[in-house]
């Protein structure tokens, strides 16, 4: 049993947490109310700035036409594929670099250039090379997520404590034993924190891709809305995107908790 003092301490901590949550929700509600009022009283132009009720109505009409879920699903699916492929590709390339230090040194400057290049600039080329479709979107997302994965994972690999590598060598471990028994498991937490970056990177890439080429998806919804000057649709799309992003990030966080038992 806890002592009275400890109970008080726990209660205090709980109360503080609750207060933080409450304030967060309060801010959101206040924001929505002010937005609605400003729009209702025409202090801001409701045509340009929309309003919470209009956003809600747009969602309902998208729901009724059945388009909403298709758009969300397409974007989530594209992001998922890019995330999986980008992460795997990144880990594989980083592993090859760890295996072959010569290669790693050779491609280092190229990686730096690719990493600093704003990938959206490659959009027009991609459309011509890969074709205007889902493949372009995925390649765009891959470009963004793979390079950052390579850099992060490789850094994790090289940060493994040299004394642990020495230990493996005292047991006459082969290179593949060092890789599979030490490097890979020892970098697991790095790799998983990479997941968190990657899910966001993939989503950025997918939305960028959808802006450029697509006929479906949340990015398309936003782009289409802006082209026909339907700002309700643009803002609705953005809000849906926020929600999707938060849910996907939450799933990765959950995965992280499940996978890392020991730090």
């Amino acid at each position: 049993m806890y002592s009275l003092e400890h109970k008080k301490y726990l209660q205090k901590a709980k109360k503080k947490n609750f207060l933080i949550k409450l304030t967060q929700i309060f801010i959101l509600i206040i924001f929505l109310i002010i937005w609605q009022l400003l729009s209702d009283y025409k202090i801001i132009n409701p045509f340009v700035f929309s309003s919470p009720t209009k956003v809600f109505e747009t969602i309902i009409s998208l729901h009724n036409s059945g388009d909403l879920y298709n758009h969300i699903l397409i974007t989530v699916w594209e992001t998922f594929i890019s995330f999986i492929l980008g992460t795997l590709l990144g880990i594989i390339i980083a592993s090859i670099m760890w295996w072959n230090k010569f290669l790693a040194k050779v491609i280092d400057p190229y990686l730096t250039i690719l990493n600093s290049l704003p990938k959206v600039a490659l959009g027009p080329i991609l459309i011509i090379w890969v074709g205007a479709g889902m493949q372009s979107i995925i390649v765009m997302a891959l470009l963004i997520s793979t390079i950052i994965t390579i850099i992060n994972v490789y850094q994790g690999f090289t940060n493994i404590d040299p004394i642990k590598i020495k230990l493996m060598k005292t047991f006459k471990a082969t290179k593949s034993q060092i890789y599979f028994k030490l490097i890979l498991p020892g970098t697991l937490s790095n790799i998983i924190s990479c997941f968190k970056v990657n899910i966001s990177m993939s989503l950025i890439g997918v939305i960028m891709g959808e802006f450029l080429v697509s006929k479906e998806g949340i990015g398309y919804l936003i782009m289409y809305g802006s082209q026909v000057f339907n700002l309700d649709l643009v803002i609705t799309g953005t809000i849906i995107l926020c929600i999707v992003a938060v849910i996907m990030y939450g799933l990765v966080l959950y995965l992280e908790k499940k996978l890392i038992v020991n730090k």
Partner: peptide, 23 residues
């Protein structure tokens, strides 16, 4: 070695079996 270099993702037993596993 100078440091224990134990792998923190392995249990005590698994750590002790590392050399045998490698060989």
């Amino acid at each position: 070695l100078q440091q224990d270099a134990l792998f923190n993702w392995k249990t005590v037993l698994e750590n002790c079996l590392l050399g045998l596993e490698i060989n």
